[in-house]
Design a protein around this nucleic acid. Structure first.
Lengths: 203, 203
DNA sequence: CTCTTTACTGACCCATGAGTCATTAATTAT
DNA sequence: ATAATTAATGACTCATGGGTCAGTAAAGAG
């Protein structure tokens, strides 16, 4: 009867596994209510091991945010910028789809964490702003610019605040985070906003 | 040398004083990081007294949310509904002013608390929804209806989701809560949105 | 097969903070 | 005045959970 080993040493994979487990836990309970012991259990390891890879709970928190963010934003932006559609078709198609997806995605959960815990981690806020918000806003601005150059948008499109595109997405996110069971057709909300904006800027 | 009393008994005022102190503390540190002892100090009383009026920290939390909300919303809605302006003038005037004020007001702080802690207090969420969100949305709907009846708005105005008015306010709130120091002309954001909506619905 | 290294465990420590309660003293009743 | 009532205190308890570390065993070297 060959006794199987009590554990395997997997130096390479542990950090990501722990961060994933922590993300799950934070998503469910929030930062403060999450116990390191619980994270460890989810990752299938002992509590002590967590501290080998992350010196404090705060370190772990930061790793989680950066992980989730980095893994997604790059892919998304690249994907979004590589289309050959007309400006209007692009907005009503891929961009709208993207906006509809975000409120139900892990990004929404990261945002909740930032809203609740962000003030105690200013460097995290900066990181998130630089790597997500600023890049997203810049992408929208570039897109509007391109539309004007192509003659698809009126020059006034350049003066539109990119946040006008994101506002209903934001409201949808918060709505779903807070009022999970209250009805709201968030898809229609975003469609309507896109419609408002397009009729304003279309050439 | 008449020794002054060590304290005064003020059964009537304590609950509100404690709730106010707790609101301050929650606003600064968030729910989890706030110590009952700190609340007591702010209120100028002993920790034990807090427990005479609020059985648990959670009770106190609920009282805070209800307090802040109730004290403001009634006044605001009444004020907002008692104007004799034309629909457009009303939107561009009092309503826009109101929207500009909210992101910097205590309401924003309550919303942060609800986003962070709400899931553990479903009855609070319901309370807030019924007393703030639903009433606000209903007010906007009534207002649109009135505009149509008066011939100031096109009938399609009835189909507008009221949330379209609130979306940029929401984004502004979150922006200010999270990215305190990053620039964003939130006032212009709301003006632009109102403008978009008005050109769509004006008769 | 033995030795060294180190990933990993789990029992432990201890600061913290929610909640309690015996005691004190301000107020009210008589 | 004196007694009865109860608002208010503050020292206490006790569970909790972040963080530590001595010891264990898996992997790799020679």
């Amino acid at each position: 009867m060959a006794s199987q080993p009590k554990y395997q040493r997997r130096k390479e994979d542990r950090p990501r596994e722990i961060a994933d487990a922590a993300f799950e836990a934070f998503a469910e309970k929030g930062y403060a209510a999450t116990r390191i012991d619980d994270v460890a259990k989810r990752a299938g390891i002992s509590k002590g091991l967590t501290y080998l890879y992350y010196k404090t709970k705060e370190d772990l928190f930061k790793a989680v945010v950066k992980n989730v963010v980095v893994r997604r934003v790059d892919a998304l932006l690249a994907d979004v910028e590589s289309t050959e559609l007309s400006s209007e078709a692009f907005i009503r198609g891929p961009m709208l789809d993207f906006m509809k997806r975000v409120p139900g995605s892990p990004i929404a959960i990261v945002i909740r964490l930032l809203i609740s815990e962000g003030r105690r981690h200013p460097d995290l806020i900066d990181y998130y702003y630089d790597n997500v918000v600023a890049r997203g806003l810049a992408a929208i601005s570039r897109f509007l610019e391109r539309g004007v150059e192509r003659g698809e948008f009126r020059p006034e499109a350049r003066d539109l605040q990119p946040q006008l595109f994101l506002a209903p997405m934001m409201l949808s996110m918060i709505w779903r985070l807070v009022f999970t069971d209250k009805p709201l057709d968030t898809d229609r909300l975003m469609e309507n906003q896109i419609d408002l904006l397009l009729t304003r800027i279309k050439a």
